[in-house]
């Protein structure tokens, strides 16, 4: 599965567990090499922006949330949830022009996962009904290698999602291609004990890292 092939199947990509981005917090994420900042306003509204302040190129994921705005660490420029600039502190009397804004991406939250899309999709993100989010695990292998390893063991993936069963544990995984050599596995628990399940998920992570490259 290449990211573009999977994008044809589902336009949504997982970027974080919802619980790992609480209200008032900004975190960086990468999707296929593109850097984004996933953040929530103080009231909890979810947004995904390009991770670059238009002013001087500073990564906005280094900034902090103040009320309903994301503040750039470098010069304190404040960005509203709609992407527009609310304040330039060096010139407090200046009204920032409406054209000044940060590019943003469609974001959605469903069943404990945060999803993003490149363009506004016509359908909701994949359902993980009845699952409990467990953890996001990094795998230092390309997403295609992991997809192939999953397919070999558990059958073809459903878009970016997979179902794995081992012993009393049933896991759902959503796969995020971070960049050419790195993937994040967002792991949810369908059945079983959470502490046992996380061990199972980590063991699968290790197997994915040992998997052969796709020729």
């Amino acid at each position: 599965m290449t990211p573009s092939a999977a994008a044809a199947a589902s336009p949504w990509w997982p970027v974080a567990l919802a619980v790992d981005v609480p209200a008032g917090v900004a975190v960086p994420a990468s999707l296929d090499g593109d850097d984004v900042v996933v953040w929530r306003t103080a009231k909890g509204e979810l947004r995904i922006f390009a991770d670059r302040c238009p002013h001087r190129g500073m990564r906005l994921s280094f900034g902090f949330v103040r009320d309903e705005t994301l503040v750039c660490l470098y010069h304190g420029w404040r960005w509203r949830a709609d992407g527009g600039c609310a304040l330039i502190p060096a010139h407090p009397d200046l009204a920032p022009p409406p054209s000044l804004c940060v590019p943003s991406y469609p974001a959605a939250e469903a069943d404990g996962l945060i999803w993003m899309a490149a363009t506004i999709p016509g359908r909701p993100p994949p359902a993980m009904t009845g699952c409990t989010p467990l953890a996001s695990l990094v795998v230092d292998r390309p997403a295609a290698v992991i997809a192939a390893a999953i397919a070999a063991a558990w059958g073809a993936m459903d878009g970016v999602c997979a179902r794995l069963a081992e012993g009393d544990v049933v896991l759902r995984m959503a796969i995020q291609p971070v960049h050419a050599e790195r993937t994040m596995l967002h792991v949810l628990l369908a059945e079983g004990d959470p502490l046992v399940a996380i061990g199972v998920a980590e063991a699968w992570r290790d197997r994915f890292e040992a998997a052969e490259p796709v020729p």
Partner: peptide, 15 residues
């Protein structure tokens, strides 16, 4: 953590 790491000289690259 500025992107790009190199300095753009085009007036339109930054604000």
């Amino acid at each position: 953590n500025q992107r790009p790491r190199l300095l753009p000289l085009s007036p339109k690259a930054e604000t």
